[in-house]
């Protein structure tokens, strides 16, 4: 693994940890859900970097899009 590729891997993983941490500490529910979706999208990018494009497409479709839609329905049903 060349140093450039290793650097991209480490950058994606660090950004994933930051996004997951934001999803925990953010007070606004919609912002937290968007941070969770960003973590999922970065995970799909990591799958693509590891030469697994099938898993990457599934993760981007299910984890980043559909889960977020269901979370938004749940947030709409709560009281402000």
């Amino acid at each position: 693994m060349s140093p450039m590729v290793a650097f991209v891997h480490i950058a994606v993983l660090v950004m994933m940890i930051i996004a997951a941490f934001l999803a925990v500490i953010l007070k606004n529910l919609l912002s937290a859900v968007i941070a969770l979706s960003a973590a999922s999208l970065l995970l799909s990018l990591e799958f693509y970097l590891l030469h697994a494009p099938d898993v990457a497409i599934a993760e981007a479709g299910i984890g980043a899009a559909l889960t977020m839609a269901i979370f938004i329905f749940a947030i709409r049903a709560t009281k402000k």
Partner: peptide
């Protein structure tokens, strides 16, 4: 994977 992508388009419409 393709079915999940089409379903995400429908989810976008519903949201």
């Amino acid at each position: 994977q393709g079915g999940a992508i089409v379903a995400s388009a429908f989810a976008l419409l519903v949201v």
